[in-house]
Design a protein around this nucleic acid. Structure first.
Lengths: 134, 134
DNA sequence: ATAACAAACGTTATATTATAACAAATTAAG
DNA sequence: CTTAATTTGTTATAATATAACGTTTGTTAT
């Protein structure tokens, strides 16, 4: 009856719920500030939860922002392949769910014939709202 | 006779030459350590040079590593569109120069019809050498 | 040449992001 | 139960990056 560990620990649940409620990506120390009333006192407790949540694909790190966002993409295979659009003006971040793109990148071979299972792609531009306003 | 500023400043030259000589991406503080004999004493002097060099496309930042690498890709238009392969084992980083890929990504439209001029893509895997050794 | 402006510099201090190290508590599985 | 693995709590500190200030240098137009 070997059962995969599916249950998140208390700290992991707390951190995940904050990130899922947020409208956009959150920084680690902003998460820390938000969870101090719930008993998490130290950065490391947050970073440990983040690490685990990334590992199991519940959240992603936006590298260019050092911020963390919930995964909205049910079929991203344990977060190995991620793509985001980032607005240069309002900083809005959206995960891109596009089968053609992910297939293209997963099958991409570089000039030496090498393939890569894991990638992270960040697009930058103006989101629709910001484009209109300018 | 309006002339574009092409000449790099002293600090910019120093920082660039260190990065160009390196085999792989360098961290800011490692650059700082390397240039202290040449009169650059403070982090900010390095970061300012890095910022400028990125702006003019001479170097790129590898976001997942917080490290900086010289641009080998003469036609990457002022560093707006970058792609790298990163070895998970030996940490070797290579800029990917692939016209099909860059065209594909530059022309990519997300599900809302939005296009992006700027992107950064980081592929992760095992480089050839590391693959053989395992 | 020189005034006016922009870019780069030097310096100190500090903010932000992330991990090391260690012991205790909790949880899962045999 | 008990062993192993994971998670926790805690303190300290490492690594990465920017703010704010005044000065110096370089460029452009007159």
């Amino acid at each position: 009856m070997t059962q995969k560990q599916e249950q998140l620990s208390k700290n992991q649940q707390i951190v995940l719920s904050i990130i899922e409620k947020a409208k956009g990506p959150l920084k680690a120390y902003s998460i820390l500030y938000n969870v101090q009333k719930r008993g998490i006192k130290a950065p490391l407790q947050v970073y440990r939860a983040l690490e685990k949540l990334i590992e199991i694909g519940k959240i992603h790190k936006i590298e260019s922002k050092n911020a963390f966002i919930a995964c909205k993409n049910s079929d991203c295979e344990i977060s190995k392949a991620t793509a985001f659009s980032i607005c240069n003006n309002c900083e809005h971040v959206k995960e891109i769910k596009n089968t053609k793109l992910s297939k293209y990148l997963s099958n991409f071979e570089d000039n030496s014939g090498m393939k890569y299972k894991k990638y992270n792609l960040e697009f930058f531009g103006l989101c629709k709202d910001c484009k209109l306003k300018q």
